Amino acid sequence: MSAPAPNFAHLIRLTDDTGLFEHARLAVVRREHGYCTDDVARGLVVTSRETDPSADLLRLSECYLTFLNHAQSKTGAFHNRLGHDRRWEDRAGLGDWWGRALWGLGTAAARHRSPWIRDSALTAFRLGTSQRSAHPHAMAFAGLGAAEVLRAHPGDADAAALLADAATAVGPPGADPRWPWPLPRLTYANAALAEVVIADAAARADDAALDTGLRLLTWLRDVQTGPHGLRVVPAGGWARGEERADRDQQPIEVAALADAFATAAAVTGDPAWQADLDRTVAWFLGANDADAVMWDERTGGGYDGLTPYGPNLNQGAESTLALLSTLQHARTAVPV
């Protein structure tokens, strides 16, 4: 499908010499909210995917890699929140930010055009693999980083072990075909859980596990499809038996689906997954419940959510990176 090229102007605007600011009022940075490892790691994923990065994007990658190294403790855990005063506001831990940090580092280690960034990212990634999180989402994000490393370094035992443990952490599918999801509730970035199962199955050439991952992703796609395009689970989540709200829909949900569809397409070669990927791009371009464009063409920023009153026009880091990563997939997708 026809899609705009990724515009990194707003990502550059959100980044200073320390890291990536989390929030914005419209397109203006809100420095008082500081930085978080979650967003910096996502930023490193996006900049590392660029095959011909500009000097500005190389600077962003260096900044994000430095931030993650600073955030990492000697145990391999990570701090998450850094104030604008450059002081950590939390203890190093193993929440989602640990998983996303390993995802960013793994992607940089496997894909970045700069050899020194690849080497430095791999060193930090390997330190992080000494840990395991009790949270399935954190493990899924870490597993996606491990899958990236394995594509570049097929014999990496630490990455293989982390990927296998991440797929196990997702849990087995439910017995009820009306709710096969392994968890009782859909929350956030749900597709990452199906994606890591698919990635692990592909790495081990396990057809049965691949079928399971694809079945989970198919169900997730189907329950997040509305009459006007994707209708992703709102910020409050959804469990079977609950009345499901159709807003506040978050761009991160759409981006997670795009990542998973791209992985499914690469693993299976099935063009139907490419068509699903097109639908994630279309959501940002207006094929959603509000017929609303979900980004600002003037700034390059992604809007923070789809509310009952239309887009939330603030352009924070998470939503901007969700837009950029989805458009990256659109640029590299094979036409169907």
Rank of each mutant, 00 (worst) to 15 (best):
D85P: 05
A109S: 06
R59P: 03
V223H: 03
A164Q: 12
A191F: 03
T218E: 14
A77W: 07
R240D: 12
G302V: 09
G104I: 02
D56A: 15
A41L: 04
D119P: 00
R178P: 00
S319T: 13
A292N: 04
A160H: 09
A160T: 01
K74E: 15
A199D: 14
T268K: 06
D158L: 13
A292I: 08
M294W: 03
R59T: 14
H153W: 11
V197M: 02
E62Q: 13
D16N: 09
R42V: 08
T47R: 01
T326M: 02
A159G: 07
A266S: 13
L150Q: 12
V28P: 00
S54K: 04
C36S: 12
Q131A: 11
R126A: 09
P4T: 11
V46H: 00
T15L: 00
V254C: 04
A92V: 12
A147Q: 07
L122M: 07
L306C: 10
L323I: 08
A317T: 10
R86M: 11
D96C: 02
G237K: 11
D56K: 06
R100K: 10
R59A: 13
A239Q: 12
D38H: 02
T218D: 15
P173W: 05
R240H: 13
S54V: 03
A202W: 06
A146I: 03
R331Q: 15
G43F: 00
L220I: 03
G302E: 05
P308S: 07
A161P: 00
F21N: 13
H329S: 12
I12V: 15
D296I: 06
V170W: 01
E148P: 06
D246K: 07
M139A: 14
G143A: 08
T129D: 03
W238T: 09
